[in-house]
Amino acid sequence: MKYEVMIVDDEISVLHTVKSLLDEANIPTRTALSGLECLRELEKGFKGLILMDIVMPEMNGYETIQAISDKGYKKDILICLLTGQQTLETQIQKYQDYVLDYIKKPIDTKTLVNAVKQYLAYLKPKK
């Protein structure tokens, strides 16, 4: 099974920046401009790490995680929030099992790439 990284952000500049950083590290990616697009990718069978923005129009990061949980996408999915927010809403505590990490914007390249590699390694099937 091929695990990828899905970058979910309504800002195209962020999508491009994060994608190019991961491309340079030879990490396969796909992008989604909204929570709804993220859900469509999951319906298509996406497996891997989701790098999720929090502040997005229509469906924010919390609501998207709620929808992921409601739809029962449990296995082979890990979520890492990408956030410029200094404080996180306590509602995210409900999803501690899903959300492994919070990476602050502006993104530090080394931190991002190392974290992504670490979390993709958790998803690799056991030998």
Partner: peptide
């Protein structure tokens, strides 16, 4: 805190 399916890895 983590999903159960990654405990082993």
């Amino acid at each position: 805190q983590m999903p159960k399916y990654i405990n082993a890895s």
